[in-house]
Nucleic acid binder design. Structure first.
Lengths: 209, 209
DNA sequence: GTCTATACTGAGATAGAC
DNA sequence: GTCTATCTCAGTATAGAC
């Protein structure tokens, strides 16, 4: 059957998102999906390959959307600095829309960002969008020193990953009407303030590459 | 020997920090530490208990320092709003100092924050410091709505965890003189801007508990 | 090409000898 | 307190049925 593969992907996506990659055994996946253990290795080769293909399946469209939005922003701005909030939206809104359709996938992506994405996936499928995003941020904040920009993007990545994993334990958020979308609005406001913050006064100087 | 236990703790700390908790086997730890496998279960009961005790050993002093700094800030401010940067420093500087002594421990803490801290550790050893910190942030930002404050603290947690795990891949930072300290200065500037950012305009309203 | 059955290696955990 | 032997379950590999 062709949908043996689909069933494995869907089931693994939900379990990885809910419990984490390491905590989910292949035997749990096959029980839930009603397939044989060896089917996973026939279709994917290994647990890691399964994760990889599972990420690529959904991250592909998300990243295409991101690039399309960045294209649009750059076209509209011409030579002017890009509007910061728009650039952040280009990164975050496509993931938010994915979360409405596949919440567990976004939880999984948050986990992967936080735990350290597989280098293969990162290099193959995110390199382009990262490069485009960093370039856009440079054009949105032309006065910010390069190494400070990179650090702030690093901070942003952490906040984003954590936000994708779920809401704070100590808040209960209503499910209406689009919880992820308003979460993103809050995050963009927070990040914009962070990126626009005055430089720290430092006792010591660091050298960036 | 009494230092069998110490040797296990030290070795596990370094390996967990360097490679992650799941990726580190007990057999790797005992090989490195030169002890027997059963010794771990004799002294700690389980791999998870080992992690727990390892965190408590170093997080205890860090959290005491944090509380002492918060006490001091509140005493100096009297009834006035607390200075935001000082409150953030109270949270981050003690961890930075720990990083100078035990860098792998701080990497491990970053991983644990990101992957989801063990509830037992969180409730037992961090609850007090979290409550004190949230209260201090409330006094530093009295005009910020409560649910917005909690979300922004959530964002902060993600940025902090990610920063503790390491520098961005795409930067090479010199080791002089206190890399973690200046990393923290950058982070505090970024977070301060985020916490002071104007509220997002929302299409839809969420309800916080 | 697709799937089943089964075996192999290494993980964490445990009982019991010393 | 410490160590050997062993248990169960994980991911992996493969031979062979359809």
């Amino acid at each position: 059957m062709i949908d043996t593969k689909q069933k494995i992907l869907d089931t693994a996506e939900n379990l990885f998102g809910a419990k984490g990659y390491d905590a989910t055994s292949l035997r749990h996946i096959i029980t839930e999906a009603g397939v044989n253990l060896a089917a996973i290795h026939y279709h994917f080769g290994s647990k890691e390959e399964l994760l990889d293909q599972l990420i690529v399946r959904r991250a592909g469209p998300v990243n295409e959307k991101r690039i399309a939005l960045l294209d649009q922003i750059e076209a509209e701005a011409g030579a002017a600095p890009l509007p910061l909030e728009k650039v952040l939206e280009a990164l975050l809104v496509p993931m938010s829309e994915a979360a409405d359709r596949n919440p567990e996938f976004v939880r999984l992506m948050g986990r992967m960002h936080a735990e350290g994405m597989l280098p293969s996936v990162l290099n193959t499928h995110f390199q382009q969008v990262i490069a485009r995003f960093v370039a856009a941020m440079r054009k949105a904040l032309p006065e910010l020193p390069e190494h400070e920009l990179l650090w702030r993007i690093h901070f942003m990545t952490g906040a984003m990953a954590h936000t994708m994993c779920g809401p704070p334990d100590y808040t209960r958020v209503s499910a209406e009407p689009s919880p992820f979308r308003s979460r993103i609005a809050r995050l963009i406001a927070f990040l914009s303030g962070g990126f626009r913050a005055p430089l720290p006064q430092q006792d010591h100087i660091e050298v960036s590459q």
